[in-house]
Design a protein around this nucleic acid. Sequence first.
DNA 1: TCAAAACCCATTGACGCCCATATTTTCCCA
DNA 2: TGGGAAAATATGGGCGTCAATGGGTTTTGA
Lengths: 156, 156
Amino acid sequence: MPLFLNTHINKVDRKGRVSVPASFRAALAAQSAVAIVAFPSFRAPAIEVVDRQRMEQFSDSADQYAQFSDTHDDLSLAIFSNAEELAFDGEGRVMLPQSLADHAHITTLAAFVGLGRTFQIWSPETFERHKQSASARVREQGLSLMLRRNTEGGGS
Amino acid sequence: MPLFLNTHINKVDRKGRVSVPASFRAALAAQSAVAIVAFPSFRAPAIEVVDRQRMEQFSDSADQYAQFSDTHDDLSLAIFSNAEELAFDGEGRVMLPQSLADHAHITTLAAFVGLGRTFQIWSPETFERHKQSASARVREQGLSLMLRRNTEGGGS
DNA sequence: TCAAAACCCATTGACGCCCATATTTTCCCA
DNA sequence: TGGGAAAATATGGGCGTCAATGGGTTTTGA
């Protein structure tokens, strides 16, 4: 299982390419991924990124519910119709499609934000503001939820 | 399970490296850990350190809840986007990233503080002050709270 | 035929890896 | 029990490798 950590800010060059952080690539390589799947977040001006495996999981679970629920129907439309597969070049970069860059207001810099099993791509300034307000909320509400116990059986 | 005890003060060299105390490394080696995960404490100017296993557990539980709860979403952001995996070099040192050193006000000395299952890294002066006020609180309030049994199921 | 994108190569700066030295601890034996 | 050898730990620095970036060239596809 991949583990995406930290925030890396990389340049978007004139051709629209960005280096995916080496540590993220390493996390993906563990499952021999040659590409990633990106789609606009519907909660924020950011790009959601998952590996192909996970996208297929989305697809499976969407299949189960889409026919019964307008919400899921809308959800899968939002995700799949806007998702793009981004392939790595020889140097570990991807082309950032214009539509996604626009959605996230990315021009010359891209912030790769590790979120554990997935990561996001933001404009650095937008992300900084988002992070501030999120951490303010965390301080207000306390940490109890995080300290939830997992079942200690067979950890990976 | 690792057990981190005592406080060790080590130097941060010009390149930003610090030796992790040998006893801490021994505790980690029991699970053949080659790296640790560090992130800024929300509660204090200190660096929280956990092993990778524990981070994977966070990741799993966050994965389940983040999509349904704004609180968990904020928490994942606070933890993962600020967390870094620190790998040991051949001498048992790690690179202390600038952002973490800044958060803890660490410049030339780092205090490794064992807290049982995890440990923290402080600036020695800051930690000294923190310890003073903490022990004052303990004297005032008594130890009953600390000695309470945790409710966790099957700790090893 | 032209534009976009995939491919290839060069540069630079940071980090990982290695070796050298200093300091502390452990352990053995007188 | 004290001294001293040997090992383990902590610290400092040199150097090679790789990640990030930029630019050029070839291929693809409209």
